[in-house]
Simulated assay, not measured.
Amino acid sequence: MIALAVITLAPLLSSCAQNTKYITTTETIYVLPPVGLVVPCRKPRVTATTPAELAVDTLKLKSALRECAQYADDYLNWRKMKHKPD
Rank of each mutant, 00 (worst) to 15 (best):
V6S: 04
P44S: 10
D57I: 08
N19A: 07
P51C: 10
T26Y: 01
I23C: 02
R42S: 07
T26L: 06
I2Y: 02
G36M: 07
Y22Q: 09
C41Q: 03
K21Q: 14
K80W: 10
T24A: 08
V6A: 09
R79I: 03
V6E: 02
C68Y: 04
V56L: 11
N19M: 06
K82T: 00
L76K: 12
P33N: 12
V31W: 07
A48T: 05
L59S: 09
K84I: 07
R79C: 07
L61W: 03
L65F: 11
L32W: 13
K43N: 13
V39C: 05
T20D: 00
L54H: 06
I23A: 12
R45W: 04
R42K: 09
P34C: 02
H83F: 14
Y22M: 03
T28N: 12
L59N: 13
K60T: 04
I2M: 04
H83K: 08
L59I: 04
T28I: 09
Y30I: 14
A64G: 09
D74Y: 10
Y75F: 15
T50H: 08
Y30N: 12
L37F: 12
V46L: 07
V39P: 06
L9M: 07
W78G: 03
A48H: 09
Y75E: 00
K21E: 05
M1G: 13
D57N: 15
W78Y: 13
L61N: 10
A10E: 00
T58D: 07
A55W: 09
P34W: 09
L13I: 03
P11E: 01
E53Q: 15
T58F: 11
P34K: 13
T49R: 15
K60C: 05
I2V: 04
K60R: 15
M81F: 06
P85L: 05
K43Q: 15
